[in-house]
Amino acid sequence: MKHTISVLLQNKPGVLSRVTGLFSGRGFNIESLSVAETLESSISCLTLVTRGDEAIIEQITKQLHKLIDVIKVTDISDSEYVEREMVLIRVKAEAQTRAEVLRVIDIFRGKVVDVSPKSYAVEVTGSASKVQAIIDILKPIGIQEIVRTGTIAMARASKK
């Protein structure tokens, strides 16, 4: 099963390498990984998406927690959460497809961020599945380049 894990860690050289080294060394897989500073510049937040059965996810969270530079590990997918990913897609847009591309972008609430005579660069934000959906739709038209940020996620606040 897919799990989204949020990790708070010391913002120091080599810390990311400890995390990725842990995954490669123990044969855990990383589907996506995204990391940046939090409000406090000495602490980073890392969101990673991984797959595994319950026992593997338990090991992953315990092993992450064991790293000295890791402050907090949360399996966000344990509760309600929102996830977002952003993708930049350069799609072929020639005379006969330009209108069609714009329609698709509109349906996905995307934005055109760069225009050339033969292509559009498009920005789309959403859940990983939405991002995948627009990629699937645009593929037959001709995707020339694609860059994804990887998922970031946040647990929903308690409703009480």
Partner: peptide
């Protein structure tokens, strides 16, 4: 050496 010993130390420092 910090990179080399990362997986075989409890922790390490430069």
């Amino acid at each position: 050496i910090v990179g080399i010993t990362r997986p075989c130390t409890k922790h390490n420092y430069l």
